[in-house]
Design a protein around this nucleic acid. Structure first.
Lengths: 238, 238
DNA sequence: TGGGACACGTGATCC
DNA sequence: TGGATCACGTGTCCC
């Protein structure tokens, strides 16, 4: 098996450059015969620092390496071609050039499709958002994001105002509407044994404003005590 | 000018198949000599109708065509390679094999991305549809609520009124001011994932009147479902 | 018989 | 120098 070829090349002489020029002329070679190209191949001996002297000492150990390397390169390339065939649809048979062409248009097609799909997605996203006002559903726990100063562990940024008049207290809290601050305030009032006389809750955009008037029950709080207690209980996420 | 090569190939004998087989063995060839490969090349001697006799009447008019054709083929292929480089990102320089490899992974990447984008789109589509469907007074299902028997263990006397308009609900509760009903209502609203838009609490004598407007979060409740749930949660003394 | 497609060996060129 | 990559001409196979 294996064809063995015994290519004998001539020094090739001069420029060689890609001059597609009609190479004609080399009318050598016979059937299965070869010709040694005797060294007398002349051809412009100057110019182009060619290898000079013997370069084509052909059948030696070097060319073998070269040939083998080239073989591997070719094999690798063909492997890639094969792999490419596998990922491009509707490509079976066809020659390499067409395969490449198909791969190119396939890529373009994919990109186009992805682009349009993405914009459709964005469109839908906007629709969804507009449909549901701006609902931050159950974004419960975690998210203790930033609390700016206040030097407390898991606190939420919040404004609290407390005014005490006798046994009554007026409370105003302003904070993000997230995580049910109203529930936290009411629970706090319960824990502190403050009876609610009146309360109102309003939401403006992301902000919730709570206002309440309460009457102290079993014990008395100073303004600062109450403010701190509420700050801890309402501001605490957990 | 131009190198002329005189590749001389041997009939290659047998199958020729890609058997990379170590061709070794042919340690022949001398410097610029060639050898004809005598027919005694072992390897199955039959098979493969070779050209017989002279085929490579080389330097004739035929080869010119052949050479030219091959040239064009090569050029076309390289053109495609060039075009491929243009559509695959981050590929400049690199050899052909790597280019093909990159093109392949790029295609896979595009496909993957398109797939995920498409499924996200579908997801959003479903969301939009469900939002659209449920926006209008969804007096659809339910019916399974059934209540009648209000006989519950530790309930408080209480009036509850619920009105649902799309994803919003209006709630009015009237009950004794004792045991912090406001805290219970807010906790209930939190548990039911109802976002408070507005709420007010007023106390008249021993009676507390709570009024709230909420927006449903993750799930939809019918009027009766909501009324029952609130009744249980707020009315339960524990 | 002729043209298309491919693989091969080889020369050249670049780090 | 040597390894890696390319373009080329050629042999071969297949319609």
């Amino acid at each position: 098996m294996l064809s063995f070829t015994s290519g004998v090349i001539l020094p090739s002489s001069g420029t060689a450059k890609s001059t597609v020029a009609a190479d004609s002329d080399h009318s050598d070679i016979e059937a299965s015969f070869v010709r040694e190209v005797d060294s007398s191949r002349v051809v412009e001996p100057e110019k182009k620092p060619r290898k000079r002297g013997r370069k084509p000492a052909n059948g030696r150990e070097e060319p073998l390496n070269h040939v083998e390397a080239e073989r591997q390169r070719r094999e690798k390339l063909n492997q890639r071609f094969y792999a490419l065939r596998a990922v491009v649809p509707n490509v079976s048979k066809m020659d390499k050039a067409s395969l490449l062409g198909d791969a190119i248009s396939y890529i373009k097609e994919l990109r186009l499709k992805l682009q349009s799909t993405e914009s459709e997605k964005d469109e839908l996203q906007k629709q969804v958002e507009s449909l549901r006002d701006q609902r931050p559903p159950p974004d419960n726990q975690d998210l203790k994001s930033s609390n700016s100063s206040s030097t407390n562990s898991s606190q939420i940024e919040m404004e609290i105002e407390v005014k005490i008049i006798g046994w009554d207290a007026m409370i105003r809290i302003q904070c993000s509407k997230r995580n049910h601050p109203a529930a936290r305030l009411m629970a706090a009032l319960k824990e502190l044994d403050l009876d609610v006389h009146h309360a109102s809750v309003s939401v403006v955009n992301e902000l919730m404003i709570q206002q309440a008037t309460v009457k102290m029950g079993s014990r008395f709080y100073t303004q600062e005590q109450l403010r701190l207690a509420l700050s801890n209980k309402v501001g605490d996420f957990r």
